[in-house]
Design a binder for these strands. Structure first.
Length: 234
DNA sequence: AATCTTTGCAACCGCATTGAA
DNA sequence: ATTCAATGCGGTTGCAAAGAT
């Protein structure tokens, strides 16, 4: 295999590498809309996106999935991560299943950034002054990052709302399945039952919640932050 | 003002697992 | 039983932005 200026030459042709463009995102979402998730190696042939299957799957899972929760990790989520990491170690995907809307990559990055260096949980365990200063800096940074993400997400939202506005029923099974594949098989069904899932898709442009610290619901023994979605929908 | 360092995240890589042929 | 493609997972890297010197 050869690599050249962000392109990778393989037996199948040229695969683009590096950061994704808005146009590539649009093509990938178009693929999912038409063919559902999976069979990622077909993306290139079916919608003309010059990315390999792995790259497409990763982009969808970590960035484009409509059920992703954006914004900073809340203190409650942080405590969950700490608890589950203590129990399971670096099993990020397992931990992620207990935090719907969060990806394994996101949790892994969060852990490495905030806890890894310290060699133990609770990075704010030095002095209180340092702790609060660190917290403030961290929150400022996260807010800035979030603003950047929101701008990006606005682009994605525009595409999403355009693509899915007339096809809720087509997309519903995919989202429902995504929900059910998480640890809590009842989630997808319950949401659908309550008409929430439909609303989530219809109002997709507005479901990018700033996570609330409260109202974390224990659901079938798992954790689910309903508050922010309910507020968006009510 | 310029340079160096730190931070957080997106994306890639290699390996393991799964499932179909 | 074997092979092979697709997918999943965890570790790692590269880069942009902000802070520190």
């Amino acid at each position: 295999m050869a690599q050249n200026m962000g392109w990778e030459v393989s037996g199948e042709g040229y695969w683009k590498k590096g950061p994704w463009t808005a146009e590539e995102d649009r093509l990938l979402m178009e693929y999912v809309k038409l063919h559902g998730e999976g069979r990622w190696n077909n993306v290139a042939t079916l919608v003309g996106l010059k990315r390999n299957g792995k790259s497409c799957r990763l982009r969808w899972v970590n960035y484009l999935r409509p059920d992703l929760k954006r914004g900073q990790i809340t203190p409650h989520e942080e405590s969950i991560i700490l608890e589950l990491h203590a129990r399971w170690g670096n099993r990020w995907s397992t931990i992620a299943r207990s935090l719907p809307g969060r990806t394994d990559n996101e949790i892994k990055n969060y852990w490495r950034t905030h806890f890894k260096k310290k060699g133990k949980p609770s990075s704010e365990s030095t002095t209180p002054e340092k702790s609060s200063a660190h917290m403030v800096r961290r929150q400022q940074f996260q807010q800035q990052q979030q603003q950047r993400h929101q701008q990006d997400q606005m682009d994605v939202n525009a595409i999403m709302s355009f693509m899915f506005k007339d096809s809720d029923d087509d997309y519903l099974p995919i989202l429902t399945q995504s929900m059910q594949e998480m640890s809590y098989p009842s989630c997808g069904g319950v949401l659908e039952e309550q008409g929430l899932l439909h609303s989530m898709i219809s109002g997709y442009g507005s479901i990018l919640p700033e996570a609330s610290n409260e109202d974390i619901t224990i659901w079938d023994g798992g954790l689910w932050n309903l508050d922010d979605r309910y507020h968006q929908l009510s």
